[in-house]
Amino acid sequence: MSKIEEALNKAKQSRNSNGTDLGVIKSDSSSIEQNGLNHLAPKKIQTQDISTVNEIALMDNGDILDNKELSELKIIHSEMDDEKVANTYRDLRTKLLQKSQGKNFIAMVTSCVDGQDSAMTSLNISTAFSFDERKTSLLIDCNLNNPKLDSLLNMETDKGLTDYMENESIEVDTIMHKTGIKRLKMIPAGMSREIATEYFTSLRMRKLMDGLLARYSDRYIFLESPPITESADTRILAELCDYVILVVPYGTSTENKIKDAVEAIGSEKLLGVVFTDIPERPRFSMSKLFKF
């Protein structure tokens, strides 16, 4: 445990200290993926979108978490021991892109039950989008009462969505935080605790969303929201976004609960269900046994 804590603390420190560094990519750990993707990417796209790629490459990603740290945070990365989970998220990304026909979108991730599953899923989906170096993703924590992304990313944030809504002097850039994952930024719930449903119905919120979506055509926005069956906020949020992804954790929800959630979302926005938290079944192999 101490080791993990050490690593996390180190990561936090470095991120905080280098928070304002501009454009310098620490390419030690991420170069492999980048190179790999460069190789695989079709040449046409490479020439066409070269400016975008350059722009994204120059983006300030802050202090990048290495694979080990990502693993500890249960965030997918490209060099996982068990590639199955990462591949699942990649498939999910492909499905979403197919659905949107390549256009960027706002997708809300919600769950039927309370818990970390929707936050975890939204984090990993946005991470999967950020694997692609021609895309960026933005994660907004809309679970104002009970924000989870900060702790999941092991971050301490100051200004967030509520602050932006309350104080019109705050710029969008100040609430967008680096996550330590390349091409993934995050807007936390915020420090203000005076929370009203009206935030999400306000014009400012709509403007924010439109602005975020319009600013970069390769930015994909994910909203992490409280369980839809328990929160009115989430239903309002569903109005603001293009797609809704319903997270159903294994062995937690009855059919009726899912039906209620689907009804609340409405069939036109619901993209589908992500069935998560399936218990891991150990596969015993001889080599593992000997190693053990």
């Binding site: 068990d82 499905k95 319903l246 009855t254 059919e255 269900v273 992500v274 069935f275 218990p279 891991e280």
Partner: peptide, 25 residues
Amino acid sequence: RIRFSQIISSGMNIPVLAEIHQYST
């Protein structure tokens, strides 16, 4: 409580986008 994604996909006719297993550190 549902333990089978098939109940959602075939039984309730809601597309299952992904099945995600627990991820251990």
